[in-house]
Design a protein around this nucleic acid. Structure first.
Lengths: 151, 151
DNA sequence: CGGGCTATTGCAACCTGTTGCAGTAGCAAG
DNA sequence: CTTGCTACTGCAACAGGTTGCAATAGCCCG
């Protein structure tokens, strides 16, 4: 038996962070956290749910989604919406980024820093609005597809 | 009885545009088009459905959504996703615009031209990517809410 | 270690959309 | 006006999420 089941970095002290906030550490939440700890980048809600079911077939959807809400409040994940509006979770932190989606070929890219800054900066300067880029998927047509269509 | 039931501008010749494309003009489609013609700006899918049901209680969801797909191909509407990922339809044209949504107070604004240009321009220059702004809702915190939180 | 408060769970019903399929009905042609 | 092709419709089942509520079970305290 392994000693204190140790999770990788951002997840190390989750259990205690829950407790200090008056929240409870339950087997179901442990499952979700373990799955997230084994995930990097982003996952859709459905994908996450299915991975939780791999570990515990009893997993109920509402429990997973509610746990994700809590984890988001703790700043451990963030949710956004893919090009089709489905939920997508970013396993924080640092990896805070938006996505670019080509409606023609279906590929996705991460939005790179200069473009991200341009967007955030434009709204901050003009409206005082603080953009949460990680929530967004920008849809359009990539260079290749735009080129192909133009010919 | 009114003569030729005349729809406001972009909708005037829809019936014929359908027919010329080998598509059919049905009572159900007429209902959807009438509802759209009486709508300006944007509507959610659910809202649209409910308005259609006001005119014809028999309205079936799949028919409405499929009709919207067709209308989108004809360029008469465009769909996007709200901050919560729900579908949102923009009654074209000209009104092609994205949205700004404050996660704290829930207000929405249209993205104004300078900021829109900044976004579109940034991706075009750097990636050759053509952004479809109307598909997007940018989430974040408005000046008022950001200010209130900072105090 | 046992009790009690109350955060969570599991369930069931609901919401917004989507999809496959068989039957219906536009519409173009004769 | 009738016919026939095939684009639609309506239905039923499904997918991804959300919500209200009663019962359960963490966790803090004595």
């Amino acid at each position: 038996m392994s000693p204190v089941e140790s999770l990788p970095e951002p997840w190390a002290g989750v259990r205690d962070r829950f407790r200090h906030r008056g929240l409870r550490w339950t087997p179901q939440r442990r499952t979700v956290v373990e799955v997230l700890a084994a995930t990097d980048g982003h996952v859709t809600g459905a994908e996450l749910l299915s991975r939780c079911r791999d570990r515990d077939p009893q997993t109920i959807p509402s429990t997973v989604y509610r746990t994700l809400d809590v984890l988001e409040e703790l700043g451990l994940v963030r949710h956004g919406h893919g090009a089709d509006g489905r939920e997508e979770f970013h396993v924080s932190p640092g990896a805070e980024h938006g996505h670019l989606y080509c409606a023609d070929c279906g590929q996705t890219w991460e939005i790179r820093t200069p473009q991200a800054d341009a967007i955030v900066g434009a709204f901050r300067k003009a409206d005082g609005f603080e953009v949460d880029l990680s929530h967004v998927t920008v849809v359009g047509r990539c260079a290749d597809c735009a080129g192909a269509a133009g010919e």
